[in-house]
C-alpha cells in the first residue's frame, strides 16, 4: 500500500481559483474600498484573512454579497494582498510596502505583516 503525492496540486488549484476570479465565475462578494470594487470568493478571503474569517463566519454577515471596508484602507495595498491570496506572490514595491504592511495588519494577515516588516528592516 502507498500513495501518489501530486506535488503541484495546491498551486494548480490556486491558479484555477485565480482564473475563476479573473472571469468572475462563482465570485460571491464585492469588496468596496473608496469607490473601487474587487470581486472575490468568500472562501479564499476567509482562508487568508482573519478579518474576513470573522466577518463571514458571523451568521448575521455570512450572506452579505458586498462589503465596504474602512476608507482608511488603501485600495492599492488591498489589490496587492488580494493578488497574494490568489497567487502566493506578494508584490513589493518600495513605494507601497508600508501601505501593504498596514493593509495586511488591517486584514489580520500577520505572517504577511511580519514578512513586510523584515523586508523593510533589510532595506534600512
Amino acid at each position: 500500500d502507498g500513495c501518489i503525492q501530486f506535488t503541484r496540486h495546491a498551486g494548480d488549484v490556486l491558479l484555477n481559483f485565480n482564473r475563476l476570479r479573473s472571469r468572475n465565475i462563482l465570485t460571491d462578494v464585492t469588496i468596496q474600498i473608496d469607490g473601487q470594487h474587487f470581486c472575490a470568493h468568500k472562501t479564499v478571503l476567509v482562508a487568508c484573512s482573519g478579518l474576513f474569517y470573522s466577518i463571514f463566519t458571523d451568521p448575521l454577515k455570512s450572506n452579505l454579497s458586498a462589503i465596504s471596508l474602512d476608507p482608511e484602507v488603501d485600495p492599492d495595498g488591498f489589490a496587492i494582498l488580494l493578488d497574494f491570496m490568489y497567487t502566493s506572490t506578494l508584490t513589493l514595491k518600495d513605494s507601497l510596502v508600508l501601505v501593504t504592511m498596514n493593509t495586511a495588519s488591517y486584514l489580520q494577515m500577520e505572517h504577511v505583516v511580519d514578512t513586510c516588516r523584515r523586508f523593510i528592516k533589510s532595506r534600512e
Binding site: G2, C3, Q5, T7, N16, R19, R23, I25
Partner: peptide, 21 residues
C-alpha cells in the same frame, strides 16, 4: 503520507481553467 511508499507525481494534477472561454 511522507515515507509510506509515497510516489511523488511532479506533473499537473487537475485541469487548467482557461483564461477565457
Amino acid at each position: 503520507y511522507e515515507g509510506v511508499n509515497t510516489i511523488k507525481e511532479m506533473g499537473r494534477s487537475i485541469h487548467e481553467i482557461p483564461r477565457q472561454e
